[in-house]
């Protein structure tokens, strides 16, 4: 296969566009695609401060890399989720990336801030891990962006992510989620950051190719909680279609954005947002879901400490001056 631009040996085929590129021309095409999406959808300008949500995986590090190369003011925000070796490696990859490029990285360490990682938050409040994790991510990205005066939060959702979420939302008939599914989500409350998805026109296979060609060192392992995730099943189904009918994912998502979503918008009522009485973040309830979760966890951790202290005391007393407290 030959590069459509220079006729050199192609390294990446973009079947949905009936084209293929050599390494340098692929990188050039990729960056132009991202920049075009940013400008076309008016996501942000070079004057804006962009907070990029970085997990340490390929998509988010690629997004951060491209935005920096394009000259945008992009600061990374990494959440340490407290999921064992996976979280440790993820944070290390983000830190190494930032160090190599002299870029600014902010880190929120969830276990250090809230006593337990997302799995603990989930367990202590009777949720599944991904639900506590998703709630924490939405809350913390928004909170850091608003508190630190960023103009916009950029996440690395790609075409495959969006197509899979869309399919899931269609299957579930989740109209509110469909209405919110857009590459630019405007703020509807002073405490709510604008959210954008600059990779929404880029396939997942293309971000992976970009990462390899640019030598970006990312976490290859998946979060242990993602095994068997429904999103993976939906992606697999879409990739089967894509294999035999290139362009399916793109048509599904872009047609939705252009033709279907405008009709849905009129059908949904905007929700009234107020400020959480504990943290001030926007919510539909008196106390936001994140505060309710973390406060419940704090109470349980407190009573655990009290219980274990009560259990320890008689032991300590009977051991009689054997040594100081551990």
């Amino acid at each position: 296969m030959r590069c459509t631009k220079c006729k050199g040996t192609a390294q990446v085929e973009v079947r949905r566009h009936h084209t293929a590129f050599c390494g340098p021309h692929f990188l050039e095409w990729f960056e132009a695609q991202v920049d075009r999406a940013v400008r076309r959808e008016r996501m942000f300008t070079p004057q804006d401060r962009v907070l990029v949500a970085v997990s340490g995986g390929k998509d988010s590090l690629v997004l951060w890399d491209v935005l920096l190369r394009l000259g945008y003011q992009a600061t990374g925000l990494h959440l340490n989720l407290g999921i064992g070796g996976y979280s440790q490696e993820s944070q290390e990859k983000c830190e190494a990336f930032a160090r190599d490029r002299g870029a600014e990285l902010l880190v929120v360490d969830i276990p250090a801030e809230y006593g337990v990682g997302v799995e603990g938050l989930a367990q202590l409040t009777g949720r599944v891990a991904c639900s506590a994790c998703g709630l924490s991510k939405r809350y913390l990205f928004n909170r850091v962006a608003v508190d630190r005066g960023f103009d916009v939060v950029a996440t690395a959702h790609n075409l495959d992510d969006e197509a899979a979420v869309l399919l899931g939302n269609l299957i579930a008939g989740n109209v509110d989620a469909l209405v919110r599914q857009t590459p630019v989500l405007e703020s509807t409350h002073p405490g709510l950051a604008r959210k954008v998805k600059p990779l929404y026109r880029i396939a997942e296979r293309e971000t992976a190719a970009y990462a390899v060609l640019r030598g970006i060192d990312y976490v290859l392992d998946e979060c242990p909680n993602s095994a068997g995730a429904r999103s993976l099943l939906l992606k697999e189904a879409l990739n089967l279609l894509e294999r035999d009918a290139p362009g399916t994912k793109q048509s599904l998502y872009w047609n939705f954005l252009e033709k279907v979503r405008p009709l849905l918008r009129t059908a949904s009522e905007p929700v009234a947002l107020r400020s959480c009485v504990h943290c001030g973040q926007p919510t539909t309830a008196e106390v936001c879901a994140f505060c309710r979760m973390t406060e419940r966890v704090a109470r349980k951790l407190q009573s655990r400490v009290a219980v274990s202290a009560a259990r320890r005391e008689p032991v300590a007393a009977s051991s009689g001056g054997g040594g100081g407290p551990a």
């Binding site: 296969m1 990446v12 997942e204 909680n225």
Partner: peptide, 23 residues
């Protein structure tokens, strides 16, 4: 990176990387 039609030989060492991430 190799495209679908790229020739490979028995003495090659090849790495296959997943591109799908989930969660």
């Amino acid at each position: 990176l190799l495209t679908r039609d790229a020739r490979v030989a028995d003495e090659d060492e090849i790495e296959i990387r997943p591109v799908v991430s989930g969660g």
